[in-house]
Design a protein around this nucleic acid. Structure first.
Length: 330
DNA sequence: AACGGTCTCAACCGCGGATGG
DNA sequence: CCCATCCGCGGTTGAGACCGT
């Protein structure tokens, strides 16, 4: 059984909007708003249109402060960066570009930016300093931001090689935020020096209980540029640990994107949390009562902010708000 | 000028999630 | 908990503009 249509297609007008229709819709919404109900709006406004069509017309064209026309270099850069990190989540990307609609950005990507990216990737002497850093060597259209680079040093310690049964699967990350990732390819690689380098330890000075990631600002191919470690006391990795770890990474990516789109120019984001007390600690992280977890930004003289601050920051992007938090409370 | 191919972008479609009864 | 309804999103379509021959 198919889904019931939202309106009777035979009784509504379709196709391009006339200036008169635009005027009716604009006048009505400016006077009364949409009343929280797009379906009943056309009737009240005297329009022979489907409610969804009215909504789309308002949001994409009539709404005040909509920006039309050419995208700036800076906007291009933001789109590239966000697309590389989160894929075709146009509404999230649009949220970072005031005045732009998701539809606009989607069209712009499909007609211009993708070609720009492909042309810069096919040129062996690319002069585009903007596009090339976001290219993933394994994909022509940057659909696999989590695919690890082949340039990861072989000396990096990889616990999954020793415990192949504990590879995380792609299901988690792809279900969290739409990333595509091959099976067994989303694992974090381990830098043997990472715990020491970052002086991470739990309250017992025991790094076996911690997990961390370090991302630099090249979000697309971050496996090429970050180090991370992960293990537990037995060298085994439980499903929940993997979930926590991957969720943590998603939060860091989100935080990193937020900061960079706000003009932050530091080198990396790092994050870690403590496994010691199990899953409950993650709730403490969010509530701000935890003591063994953090996300830090920066290089030398870095500033830092706790995850609880991020969670309470309503201006933080929806990826963190809607995609990560449910994991902590489930 | 005429024609055909390509490009652009507004609009549509259908799905999944949220919400409320 | 179930179901109906609505909203919002991302993928797709197609009319018109544009361009090359």
């Amino acid at each position: 059984m198919g889904r019931a249509p939202c309106c009777d297609k035979t009784k509504v007008k379709r196709g391009p909007w006339s200036p008169e229709e635009d005027s009716k819709l604009r006048d009505y919404i400016e006077k009364y708003g949409n009343g929280g109900n797009w379906i009943s709006l056309p009737l009240k406004a005297g329009l022979r249109r489907c409610g969804k069509s009215c909504r789309l017309r308002w949001l994409n064209y009539l709404r005040p402060n909509i920006k039309h026309g050419d995208f700036s270099e800076e906007e291009d850069r933001i789109i590239f960066s966000l697309f590389a990190a989160i894929g075709s989540r146009w509404s999230i990307i649009a949220a970072h570009l005031p005045g732009r609609t998701d539809n606009d950005i989607k069209n712009y990507w499909n007609t211009k930016l993708r070609k720009k990216l492909l042309s810069s990737s096919s040129s062996s002497h690319s002069s585009s300093a903007m596009a090339s850093p976001y290219l993933n060597p394994n994909s022509q259209d940057v659909k696999r931001p989590l695919t690890p680079s082949t340039t990861i040093p072989s000396s990096s310690y990889n616990p999954y090689a020793e415990n192949p049964n504990h590879y995380p699967t792609k299901s988690l990350i792809s279900s969290i935020n739409g990333f595509e990732a091959e099976e067994k390819q989303i694992l974090p690689y381990i830098s043997p020096n990472y715990p020491q380098d970052l002086s991470l330890s739990d309250s017992n000075n025991n790094t076996w209980y911690a997990s961390g990631f370090l991302l630099n600002h090249n979000m697309c191919d971050h496996y090429n540029n970050h180090t991370s470690f992960s293990s537990n006391i037995n060298g085994k990795r439980s499903e929940i640990m993997m979930k926590q770890e991957e969720t943590m990474m998603m939060m860091m990516i989100d935080h990193h994107i937020d900061q960079r789109t706000k003009g932050y120019n530091g080198d990396f984001t790092q994050g870690y949390y403590n496994y010691y007390t199990g899953h409950g600690d993650l709730k403490q992280m969010i509530s701000g009562t935890g003591t063994n977890s953090n996300i830090n930004m920066g290089c030398s003289g870095s500033s830092s902010s706790s995850i609880s601050n991020l969670a309470e920051n309503k201006s933080s992007s929806s990826l963190l708000q809607h995609k990560c938090l449910p994991y902590f409370y489930s």
